[in-house]
């Protein structure tokens, strides 16, 4: 009787990529500081979720975009070993370039054939200043981008909800329905932190589970997304420390 063969069994990588707007306007009203703090504070929760789902190997990366797009964390980094370095705000909003940068990495290889659908979180407070359409088209040519869970967080009133919606994909038919398949509007540091926490824990948990869904059904997006956190949507009603 032969012994167990020398094959590579592996848990499935779950790539989680932040795309962070670092344009000059992010320096205003403490937005950049709030974003850095929200991501840093979310890491312990994300680590717990990763530990609870050992079948998924959560790997984090981040892109910053201002005048140009750069990998802020270029290596897919296991969340338990991640140390967040603060992003700095300065320049324009090269969102299209950021999408192209991510597209290059969502190709197989370097993407693993057996990876779970990646999670892409786009965070912005303004409008793209470069060719967003070309960047999005380039991104969406990659099958892994099409399979990805694409979320967007709009900081304040000036964020371009239309381009963020294009990044996410078609919005749910019910206009009144609160849905993660629409841009999540963070009106202050508290709601931003809640959304970042939700994306890095609840969404990562859902994306880690070995479940299937029906072909041809787009009701849930690419994975069944968990409920949104109970955050006030209307900034006028918000009780956070500062309204953006």
């Amino acid at each position: 009787m032969p012994g167990f063969p020398n094959v590579r069994l592996a848990n499935r990588p779950l790539h989680f990529i932040y795309l962070c707007d670092c344009s000059g306007s992010m320096a205003a009203q403490g937005k950049m500081q709030s974003l850095n703090q929200a991501i840093r504070q979310s890491l312990p929760g994300m680590t717990r979720v990763a530990r609870d789902n050992p079948e998924a190997r959560v790997l984090v990366r981040a892109v910053s975009f201002a005048d140009q797009a750069h990998w802020h964390i270029a290596e897919p980094t296991p969340v338990e070993g991640l140390q967040w370095r603060d992003l700095q705000a300065n320049g324009c909003t090269a969102m299209g370039a950021a999408l192209e940068l991510v597209a290059e990495q969502l190709h197989t290889p370097p993407m693993e054939e057996r990876a779970l659908p990646p999670v892409l979180v786009l965070i912005s407070d303004g409008q793209p200043t470069d060719d967003f359409d070309a960047g999005l088209a380039r991104l969406m040519r990659e099958p892994w981008a099409q399979k990805a869970v694409r979320l967007a967080i709009a900081l304040g009133h000036d964020a371009d909800l239309e381009v963020l919606q294009q990044f996410i994909g078609p919005a749910p038919a019910n206009q009144r329905e609160r849905s993660p398949r629409r841009p999540l509007q963070a009106s202050n540091a508290t709601s931003l932190a809640q959304y970042i926490q939700w994306a890095s824990t609840a969404v990562v948990g859902a994306a880690s589970m070995p479940t299937s869904r029906l072909g041809g059904s787009h009701d849930d997006g690419n994975i069944p997304l968990p409920d949104l956190p109970p955050t006030e949507m209307d900034p006028m009603d918000d009780v956070g420390p500062m309204v953006w």
Partner: peptide, 15 residues
């Protein structure tokens, strides 16, 4: 074949 199938999507008896 995963043509047109997204994420962890699959064909199913319930379709």
């Amino acid at each position: 074949l995963d043509d047109g199938l997204q994420g962890e999507a699959t064909e199913s008896l319930c379709l």
